[in-house]
Design a protein around this nucleic acid. Structure first.
Lengths: 153, 153
DNA sequence: TTTGTATGCATGTACGTGCAAGTTTTGCGC
DNA sequence: GCGCAAAACTTGCACGTACATGCATACAAA
């Protein structure tokens, strides 16, 4: 008889769902990376900063509670505390205490912040749709999915 | 005539592509978070560790060059240096020098690592498909897109 | 061989984020 | 009114990652 090597654990095969999920993650990583790089180079702001400004700028009152902003960004409270601190340091936003609920804090966008966002949004939109089109060309199945979701026209 | 407030910059509307992209990001954040939490709680390993083990385990030689691993994971080379160091500390992998190219380093999975991956993969696969189904139910357009890509059956 | 350049990693450092703990305020039951 | 849990933030700390740099090796040209 032949020697049997000390059998290493059999590893179950990777499912289609997991494989596809990996593709999705690599896609988002590439796109997010490109967005971050371009935004930083051309406008000197990060991705979270940009998106925070976007939410604040499109708020009817130009302000948002910290927790609201956290939810919209998919970050937690403490991250938003520091994010708003950075925006404040750059004069893109300031903190304002709620009169009615003294626990609450509003993040309010400044005109400077609004202007910076307006400039950057052109870059952001262009870069995003460009990147998505490119990804779509490289993977027709992805293109179909993105179109179905409204990210590609 | 009426007073005109000091006109703040007009902010261009957010495109459909950007809105959809945000939905995709929030989706991936939720799913990745759930995966990370469950994997950490039930098996004591992080997401990057799990995926690295997966790539190593499914490699025909049970090993990968550092840079290869970085590409597959969507991380950069320095992150992988530290990732493999963590795997090494946990006895899930070890570093092996290439004989032919003395610059090169292989990350090699151990039987312990392979076993841990095999255990965790059940959890991972279940959690992933569960999360995707749930997301799909909450958003039919997303369900269609995920199905088109092969992530949902 | 020697020189110059590229490749493959490792290390120092900085940054953004999450978690846990702490503070202040609110609201509720009594 | 009083106590007390919950809510809204902030802060300390640790972790994972990226970028820049450095080092050793490989390769090509002279």
């Amino acid at each position: 008889m032949t020697h049997t090597a000390p059998t290493p654990t059999r590893v179950p095969p990777v499912s289609d769902a997991a494989t596809t999920w990996q593709r999705i993650l690599l896609l988002t990583a590439r796109v997010e990376n490109k967005l971050a790089t371009v935004l930083q180079r051309r406008h000197g702001i990060g991705l979270s900063e940009y998106r925070a400004l976007g939410h604040l700028a499109t708020s009817p009152t130009s302000e948002l509670r910290m927790q609201e902003l956290a939810d919209k960004l998919g970050l937690n409270q403490s991250s938003v505390t520091r994010l708003v601190a950075r925006l404040n340091a750059a004069d893109f936003a300031y903190r304002d205490l709620c009169a009615d609920d003294k626990r609450g804090v509003y993040a309010v966008i400044t005109d400077t912040g609004r202007a910076r966002y307006a400039e950057a949004s052109h870059t952001y939109e262009e870069t995003l749709s460009g990147a998505l089109e490119e990804e779509g060309r490289a993977d027709p199945r992805l293109a179909a999915a993105l179109t179905a979701m409204g990210a590609l026209s």
